[in-house]
Computed example of a mutant assay.
Amino acid sequence: MGQLWMQISWESGSVFNANQQFKGPVPTELKIADNWTGPQLFERLEGQLAGDYLRDDASSRGIYLLVYRGKVKRWQLPKGEMANFDELISALQKHWASVANTHPRVEEIKVIGIDLTKRAQSPVPKKSTRSKSSSNKTEEKTINDSAARKRTSKGKTNSDTEHE
């Protein structure tokens, strides 16, 4: 399998992926959704990713990656309605589908949203119901039994190992 390389521009938030297995880089536009208005995000999808980064003959597919940190609750969509983060991602993908024919060289743009607030909401794994002391005793017994078997296999008996 070929190597994947990435070129990252921290100033513009752009990532260019390439691999020896396929021709052409795959531009990825990364935005922290909380830092942008709805109209800006729609414009950057079409103007920056489709218009600038995908104008290269070698690139025909791109990724629009938005990360949500929970600071903004709603964004304005092109027709004026307000949307939460999940609705924004869906609206951006639908917007791309509606304007894709104006960018004939672009085969596909995938809009991906990562909601970091869901990470904070994920349930904490439950602790084992066994007490720590009984767990340690079981572990110690297993280790001692294992050591005794090794000694027995070397010609000593269990009673020999108890006196050592």
Results as ranks from 00 to 15, higher is better:
residue 90 S to V: 01
residue 158 N to K: 12
residue 127 K to R: 13
residue 21 Q to H: 02
residue 77 L to D: 06
residue 89 I to P: 08
residue 95 H to R: 05
residue 64 Y to V: 08
residue 67 V to C: 02
residue 105 R to Q: 15
residue 154 K to F: 05
residue 128 S to E: 09
residue 47 G to A: 04
residue 116 L to E: 14
residue 49 L to G: 14
residue 73 K to R: 13
residue 49 L to F: 06
residue 14 S to C: 09
residue 155 G to E: 05
residue 132 K to S: 14
residue 129 T to F: 00
residue 22 F to L: 00
residue 145 D to C: 06
residue 11 E to A: 09
residue 115 D to W: 09
residue 70 G to S: 11
residue 111 V to Q: 00
residue 127 K to Q: 07
residue 130 R to Y: 07
residue 116 L to C: 02
residue 139 E to W: 00
residue 8 I to E: 09
residue 20 Q to V: 09
residue 17 N to W: 11
residue 58 A to R: 14
residue 39 P to L: 05
residue 136 N to A: 14
residue 111 V to N: 04
residue 121 Q to D: 15
residue 44 R to D: 11
residue 78 P to R: 01
residue 11 E to Y: 09
residue 133 S to L: 07
residue 119 R to L: 03
residue 140 E to R: 02
residue 150 K to T: 02
residue 61 R to T: 01
residue 155 G to C: 03
residue 153 S to P: 06
residue 51 G to D: 14
residue 65 L to V: 04
residue 127 K to A: 12
residue 82 M to Q: 15
residue 149 R to Y: 02
residue 69 R to Q: 12
residue 130 R to L: 03
residue 22 F to P: 05
residue 124 V to C: 08
residue 117 T to Q: 07
residue 133 S to H: 14
residue 42 F to M: 10
residue 133 S to W: 03
residue 141 K to H: 12
residue 111 V to M: 04
residue 140 E to G: 00
residue 31 K to R: 15
residue 154 K to N: 08
residue 114 I to A: 05
residue 140 E to P: 03
residue 141 K to Y: 07
residue 126 K to A: 09
residue 107 E to T: 10
residue 46 E to G: 10
residue 152 T to L: 04
residue 129 T to V: 04
residue 57 D to E: 15
residue 85 F to H: 02
residue 131 S to N: 04
residue 104 P to H: 07
residue 81 E to I: 01
residue 66 L to Y: 07
residue 100 A to D: 04
residue 46 E to V: 15
residue 10 W to K: 14
residue 36 W to Q: 13
residue 12 S to D: 13
residue 20 Q to P: 09
residue 122 S to Y: 11
residue 40 Q to M: 10
residue 56 D to C: 14
residue 53 Y to N: 15
residue 80 G to M: 08
residue 127 K to N: 13
residue 151 R to W: 13
residue 135 S to F: 00
residue 93 Q to M: 08
residue 10 W to H: 11
residue 149 R to W: 07
residue 146 S to H: 03
residue 120 A to R: 06
residue 46 E to N: 05
residue 29 E to M: 03
residue 40 Q to H: 07
residue 58 A to Y: 09
residue 164 E to V: 10
residue 120 A to T: 04
